[in-house]
Design a protein around this nucleic acid. Structure first.
Lengths: 150, 150
DNA sequence: CGATATTTGCAAGGTAGCAAACGAATTGTC
DNA sequence: GACAATTCGTTTGCTACCTTGCAAATATCG
């Protein structure tokens, strides 16, 4: 009798791993009063310069409503400026303020987290993990879409 | 020059996969006005019977504060009864109400989600994925613990 | 016995995610 | 030009997760 591969194990570890990384990121950023997603926004603005909120949402795969809250928090802290700009009066251009740039320069490099998590792990295993996770994600998203289309 | 295995890819797919599964679970449970974690609580109570809130928190790996909110929601909906019980007057015994049991019997089997996500995937790949995710989780948790202990 | 942990649960406050609904602006179509 | 559909950002309300701080009950140690 073929033992069914324990799918619940993969699922459980996926969740645990996500939250472990998230927790470490949160803990590292706490002294700077920043959340993980806020950090991603700052990094994007620091790396590629001012961006339309719409494009940033696409780049970071955030829902409009979610990003709206994140941006509001960053504006409240004075780290980001949000201005109507460009031909389309609906769109908002996001720019780092001087204070935002200063904070960004003070922030520690967070790449140590990924290195700590996956550094030195067998490359073939890593590739297999990516294959599994991507396949699962695509199937799940397909199912979710189909459920709606019914 | 050894191309650095793209750790950000593993991390990104871990997050995407977690949320894709979560979204499908949420969508399936929405008609019943239940969240994913609430479902886990109901399942545990349905499977193993009444449980102390403390033990349930350990079993489902939930923070006390988080579980407190979940239980409050389930009590508000009349699905779960929370009573002081046993020798220790701090502990709360959680029991399914009749209405909770009735709802549980009506709920669809959610295992199709794991089957949809991971079914038919190469067993070796699955095993590798579990290895990677578990190793990463343990390393991250170790780091988080050490940071505190400094 | 009494003072001091420790454990258990709750409440408040913050981050982050989603869905639904809305206003304003833009674009498409007739 | 007028009407319809779409896009962009916001708001509201929900789930869920965390931390901090509290209070009550219990356990432990001197």
């Amino acid at each position: 009798m073929p033992e069914p591969s324990d799918h619940s194990t993969v699922a459980a570890w996926t969740k645990r791993c996500y939250f472990a990384g998230r927790a470490l990121m949160d803990a590292t950023l706490r002294p700077y009063d920043l959340g993980a997603t806020q950090w991603y926004v700052l990094r994007h603005l620091a790396d590629v310069g001012p961006a339309m909120q719409r494009d940033l949402g696409r780049a970071l795969e955030l829902e409009r409503a979610t990003l709206s809250g994140i941006v509001a928090a960053l504006v409240r802290k004075g780290l980001v400026r949000q201005a109507a700009s460009g031909g389309d009066q609906r769109q908002r251009l996001l720019t780092l303020t001087a204070s935002g740039e200063a904070l960004w320069r003070r922030l520690p490099d967070l790449s140590f987290i990924q290195e700590a998590a996956f550094g030195g792990i067998d490359a073939a295993d890593l590739a297999a993990a990516v294959r599994v996770l991507r396949a699962a994600t695509e199937r799940l998203q397909g199912l979710a879409g189909k459920a709606q289309a019914s």
